[in-house]
């Protein structure tokens, strides 16, 4: 009898405690949901206030609605330029970072100058130099009888924009990649070396795969920033979002309307990019879950 009484007692106690845990979990869940509802209300409130304010100040929402399609017309160029640039910038940054970390004095020197010069000058001026400055060199080369070489220096707006953005972001991302590569503990390198790997194998098989996981979120941030910096290529007449918005804005004197449409376009692009960035990050964290 006594033997039976003991487990009975402990069983009920365990049940009581389990009930307590469930109640607490439910409470936390409810608090979390209430909090997110509150945050959403604040967001909606701000948007409503802004819209209300704009209507009071005699803006023309119907004009915005009528020309919303500049988003669709321009998004292709904006995204295309940004994607091509981030791709090239990533390659530049990878080589830049490896060069900065190498013991080779030539590689270290070249990458050092590259990062220093690009980070020390405005992107706008880099764009001017590439789009307007390089053709001047090209022309001179034509004159001295090297037309095949000269042709390389005269770039259309889109290639010039991609080149400028790639070079610019490549320099900033070199530093990001360098930090990522350096963040992998020295023990990883030693373990790989002790197995007999060459420096190249260590980089490719051990360091890079781990560093990429650290670098990816930052590359995502850079891509999001670049989508907006790509607005600068509008000055060369590339038909991207900002350029199209400006065209209508000047023609019909609808500045607030068109630039708000453009701003909304970038915002939407950013939200979409953030979503994908989040998904990639979660995928890459797989091996690190406990």
């Amino acid at each position: 009898m006594t033997i039976k009484a003991v487990p009975d007692q402990s069983d009920t106690r365990v049940d009581a405690h389990r009930g307590m845990g469930e109640a607490l979990a439910a409470l936390h869940e409810r608090q979390r949901r209430i909090h997110s509802i509150k945050v959403t209300v604040v967001w909606l409130g701000i948007v409503a206030l802004l819209i209300g304010g704009l209507l009071l100040l005699k803006t023309d929402p119907s004009y915005m609605v009528a020309h919303y399609n500049i988003i669709l017309q321009g998004a292709g160029a904006t995204l295309g330029v940004s994607l091509a640039s981030i791709l090239i910038a990533t390659i530049l940054a990878l080589f830049g970072a490896i060069a900065r970390l190498s013991t080779n004095s030539l590689a270290q020197g070249i990458s050092g100058v590259y990062v220093s010069v690009i980070r020390g000058t405005p992107l706008l001026i880099q764009i001017f130099l590439i789009y307007l400055g390089l053709p001047q060199i090209g022309q001179r080369l034509n004159e001295i009888g090297l037309p095949w070489l000269g042709r390389l220096f005269i770039l259309d707006a889109i290639p010039a924009g991609i080149l400028a953005l790639s070079l610019n972001y490549g320099a900033y991302m070199t530093e990001i990649f360098r930090a990522g590569l350096q963040s992998i503990g020295y023990g990883q390198r030693e373990a790989a070396i002790a197995l007999g790997m060459t420096p190249m194998q260590v980089m490719r098989r051990i360091i890079l795969p781990q560093a990429i996981r650290i670098i990816i979120p930052d590359v995502g941030n850079q891509f999001i920033a670049m989508q907006k910096d790509s607005a600068l290529v509008s000055i060369m007449g590339v038909w991207e979002i900002t350029f199209l918005a400006g065209r209508y804005a000047r023609r019909d004197s609808k500045y607030i309307e068109m630039y708000l449409v453009a701003a909304a376009a970038y915002w939407i692009l950013t939200i979409i990019s953030s979503y994908f960035q989040d998904r990639i990050e979660r995928r890459m964290g797989r091996a690190y879950e406990r």
């Binding site: 503990g185 023990g187 990883q188 030693e190 373990a191 790989a192 002790a194 197995l195 007999g196 790997m197 194998q201 098989r205 051990i206 795969p209 781990q210 996981r213 091996a287 690190y288």
Partner: peptide, 25 residues
């Protein structure tokens, strides 16, 4: 070599860790 801090490759499974040397090196 066996290290104090293990230094397993965290991005590979246990099997991949052990296969890495024979395959790559």
């Amino acid at each position: 070599m066996v290290f104090q801090e293990f230094n397993l490759f965290p991005h590979m499974t246990v099997l991949e860790n052990v296969m890495e040397g024979p395959v790559i090196v």
